[in-house]
Nucleic acid binder design. Structure first.
Length: 551
RNA sequence: GGUCCCAUCGUCUAGUCAGGUCAGGACACCAGGUUUUCAUCCUGGGAACAGGGGUUCGAAUCCCCUUGGGAUCACCA
């Protein structure tokens, strides 16, 4: 018995799961759940040149991180399974061949022998004449003897679908509405390639049909392809699914958000800064040369991120993995991505997966494209982080640190580190970015002579630096190094040295121990650092400025 | 260029299908305030129906045109 609703997400594993794909997967998942249906995952790896197993596992991990599970498909950590596999298209070749024979037998498909070069010539010509290119059906005119001969010679050939005569074609789309074109707009497209693999059009129709998919939810770039699909469905006698085409997601500048953005950012930076060889310990000279040889040669994902890190630039977040490593919560990315094209109404913007499943429907999906606004995502992440209890925050931050900042995960007093950073972090990464001094050696701290440093240490009638010896003395005399003792020490220091102004005392200390004007609340910072390090850093700072400046 | 899709504050959007509240919210921005730094937090503010025609007593909402943006036109998916 077939289900009322079965959606599917069918990525081709050519890279990482990017946010556009993630949103599509999310809508597929949510719609299936909302209607007590099933969500199917299928891997479209018929492009042998571009697919890889590594990328496929990456997709599984990204999906899992987003809390998107699938009822049917490749088996992975509790997701997947089902009776209508295999769920890798590369393993379904025999099925496609059988189905292809059906079309060949009925005359709905035919062999074609033109080379790519010949076809490209035709395309150029069409473009020059300002008309759309259509395959001219030359191979359809071939005699059966010629075809037999070519076939036995092993002449490279493809199989084309013969578009039957008839009237206009209409796609019924639940979001876009009805879309109609003239049948003459569709030419005899290729359904089987020279390498013996089916094209996307063929495989997707066969699989969706056999796997009883009821709703096809995908990006709007597929809208024009859908006419081919309904033609194929007609030839096979397959009932068309409900179609839903989603608008695209763009960068703030209006360009399409794509994997190439990282490459573009790197190129721009390298060019603007006149860097003409790979920085040390980064990427190989060969990789660099190849990359610089052409704009079409993109750097590998790994190389790109290493180069970005070395150059000290943040590459634009495009993939789900990027947001994970930047320290966003998966629930927040889910929430924000959903909002790009769908809203529950009633001025509700922040919600969880349960709410989504309860309220999701296509009649509230927007047709127009959306720009990805990182600032809003960041604001949502802050809100979500602040709603966590300190225990929840600490354990989530710990998991993140284990993967992306092990030196912080190894911190003795991790829970204090977490609570000291909870309120002031917009992402997990924020916590470690303003606490680098915690893992640095006491002797490695340096003090740049920036404005805030000078202001706290060297400006004013009584300078911060001049108070340092007394502060050191006071700290040294403390028998216990706790929140309370440090706090009372600080307050008495403020009373005696600066008319009760805590800032006058706290800020010089902060700069001395952190090497800069930013750190967690001062008491937390000092407890975290320990008495010994605190005093050592104060001393070093005092010596450094006393010897280099006129005080 | 052909075909198709889209159009409300800077951004995401509510309102459009069933025309009738100074077009609502969020993010961002600006101005104040709280705070031992940064970040939070609080208060207030400016900010949009792309343009032009219709239909109607009445149009963001329905129709047409223009303009702008986008997708696609592969043996990639």
């Amino acid at each position: 018995m077939s289900l009322l609703v079965k959606t599917r997400f069918a990525p081709s594993p050519t890279g990482h799961l990017h946010v556009g794909g993630a949103r599509t997967a999310l809508y597929c998942w949510a719609f299936a759940k909302a209607n007590s249906g099933e969500f199917l995952l299928r891997i479209e790896d018929t492009d042998q040149k571009r697919s890889s197993d590594e990328a496929t596992v990456g997709f599984f991990n990204d999906l899992e991180w987003m809390n998107i599970d699938w009822d049917e498909g490749p088996e992975f950590k509790g997701s997947g399974g089902g009776d209508e596999g295999p769920y890798y298209q590369s393993q379904r070749l025999e099925i496609y061949k059988t189905k292809l024979q059906l079309l060949l037998d009925s005359g709905s498909a035919y062999f074609a022998f033109e080379t790519q070069e010949e076809l490209n010539e035709e395309r150029k010509k069409a473009r020059a004449e300002k008309r759309a290119y259509r395959y001219n059906r030359a191979s359809l005119e071939l005699s059966s003897e010629t075809i037999e001969q070519y076939l036995s010679e092993g002449k490279p050939r493809v199989v084309r679908f013969k578009v039957p005569d008839g009237g206009p074609l209409t796609v019924h789309d639940s979001v876009v509405g009805d879309v109609t074109i003239e049948r003459s707009e569709v030419d005899d497209f290729v359904i089987f390639k020279t390498d013996g693999y089916p094209t996307y059009h063929f495989a997707v129709v066969v699989d969706d049909g056999m796997m009883n998919v009821t709703h096809v939810i995908r990006g709007q770039e597929h809208l024009n392809n859908t006419f081919k699909h309904i033609l194929l469905q007609e030839a096979f006698g397959i009932k068309p699914p409900v179609y839903v085409h989603l608008s695209l997601i763009f960068n703030p500048d209006g360009s399409k958000m794509s994997k190439r953005d990282k490459d573009k950012t790197l190129r721009k930076f390298v060019k603007e800064n006149g860097i003409d060889s790979p920085p040390k310990g980064c990427i190989t000279q060969d990789a660099w040369d190849l990359w610089q040889s052409s704009k079409d040669k993109q750097l590998g994902t790994q190389d790109a991120s290493v180069l970005g890190k070395t150059l000290g630039i943040t590459l634009p977040e495009i993939n789900v993995e990027d947001f994970k490593s930047e320290g966003y919560m998966p629930e927040v990315l889910m929430n924000y991505l959903c909002l790009l094209g769908w809203s529950p109404g009633n001025d509700i913007e922040q919600f969880d997966a349960e709410f989504l499943v309860e309220h999701f429907s296509f009649d509230r999906v927007v047709k127009s494209p959306a720009k990805f606004d990182r600032a809003k995502l960041l604001a949502f992440n802050l809100d979500a982080l602040q709603k966590l209890t300190s225990e929840e925050f600490a354990s989530k931050l710990f998991v993140w640190c284990q993967e992306y900042a092990p030196e912080f995960a190894a911190l003795e007093n991790f829970s204090l580190f977490a609570s000291a950073n909870h309120e002031r972090s917009k992402t997990y990464k924020d916590a470690i970015m303003t606490s680098q001094f915690l893992i640095e050696d006491d002797e490695a701290i340096t003090w740049p002579e920036s404005k805030p440093v000078k202001k706290a240490l060297l400006k004013g009638e009584v300078t911060g630096l001049s108070r340092m010896p007394i502060i050191i003395e006071c700290f040294t005399s403390l028998e216990e190094w706790t929140n309370e003792t440090i706090d009372s020490c600080l307050h008495s220091l403020a009373e005696s040295l600066a008319d009760g102004s805590l800032g006058k005392v706290a800020q010089p200390i902060r700069i001395a121990v952190a090497g800069g004007p930013v750190s967690p609340p001062i008491v937390d910072t000092l407890v975290l650092l320990g008495k010994e390090s605190t005093i050592r850093r104060l001393e070093r700072c005092h010596e450094y400025f006393a010897s280099t400046c006129d005080v």
